[in-house]
Every structure is written in C-alpha cells, then in structure tokens.
C-alpha cells in the first residue's frame, strides 16, 4: 500500500513540477510548485521522516512560497508584465539537453548494483531527531542560525532606499 502510494505521489510531484516550469505566469508556477511540494512532503512521510514532512509543509509550502507570492504581488508582475514565453527555438535544444541528462542519470541509477536494494520500513520519531540535532549536530545548528542572521542583514542592506539618481 505504502509503495503504491509512494509511486503515485512521485509521479504527481513530477507532473506538478513539469507544469510549474512551463508556466509563463509566475503566480501559476508558484501554485503548481506548492502542489508538488505537498506531494514531496507526503513522500518524506512515507520514507519515515514525519518531522521533515511537517516542516516541508510549514516552511516550504507555507512560508517560502507565500514569500514568493507576496513579492510577485507587491511588484505587480502578474500578468501584464510577464515577458513573452519561451519560444520553440529555446525549447528545442534545452529539451534535448535535459532529456539526455535525465536518461544518463536514470541509466546510472538503474545500472548501479545497489539499484535493486529495498528500503526497509523505517520511522524516525521526532524526539530522536531532535536529540541528534541538538547534541551531535549542535555546531551545525549554530552555524545555520548565524547564516539566517547574515541573510537578514543582507536583505536589510538590499532593501534600503537607493541613492538619489539611481532610481529610475
């Protein structure tokens, strides 16, 4: 049951992502991406990561995608300012390149001797994850928190008013 669900979710995710990257309107693209992220969160859950799944929904689909939508709507991009969509002259070589990369990736994965290995049933309780995060990986947590601080300062610096004459 879980296996069938995993493959259904995987193909849902790929379909939503494919629809997302072919949209011209960024609002539609973000909505499709949110659908794909929900499917990915359920895949995380099936792989025994309930906490990561929950945070995927809260942080990714919730916060980050809403931030994207907020910026799109604040700048008033949709839909009149959307540049004309990618033409077939741009599509052709790219589709060739991407499909060749994808085929090579899949061949490498399936020719690997480990390819047939099954993932055993696994469930990681959030408590165990939290203990590992704040004991063995405490230094990494500190570094990431510093990075979030730097990102805040960087966003503030970029958001300051432009000097006179540079604003068009």
């Amino acid at each position: 049951m879980a296996t069938v669900l995993f493959y259904i979710l995987g193909f849902t995710m790929l379909a939503a992502t494919l629809l997302c990257i072919t949209r011209r309107n960024p609002v539609h693209a973000v909505i499709y991406l949110v659908a794909g992220l929900f499917a990915l969160a359920l895949m995380f859950y099936l792989l025994g990561a309930p906490l990561v799944a929950a945070w995927q929904v809260i942080v990714y689909a919730g916060a980050i995608m809403v931030l994207f939508l907020f910026i799109i709507m604040m700048l008033g991009l949709a839909p009149q300012d959307v540049p004309e969509g990618p033409s077939w002259q741009r599509w052709g070589p790219l589709a060739l390149l991407s499909s060749s990369i994808m085929i090579c990736t899949l061949l490498l994965i399936f020719k690997d001797p480990m390819a047939g290995q099954q993932i055993d049933d696994f469930y990681l309780a959030p408590q165990v994850l939290g203990e590992a995060l704040f004991s063995r990986y405490a230094l990494a947590v500190e570094i990431v928190s510093f990075q979030l601080l730097f990102a805040t300062i960087g966003a503030y610096m970029l958001g300051r008013p432009l000097p006179k004459g540079e604003d068009q």
Partner: peptide
Amino acid sequence: MISFGHALAFAGALFVL
C-alpha cells in the same frame, strides 16, 4: 517495499526539471 533506486530516480528527475 520502496526501491532505493526509484527514490533516487525521482530525485534525479526533479533536479533535472
């Protein structure tokens, strides 16, 4: 049982997209 190769294949396809 989910195959490890299939999970990696989904991830690879996502990356290429």
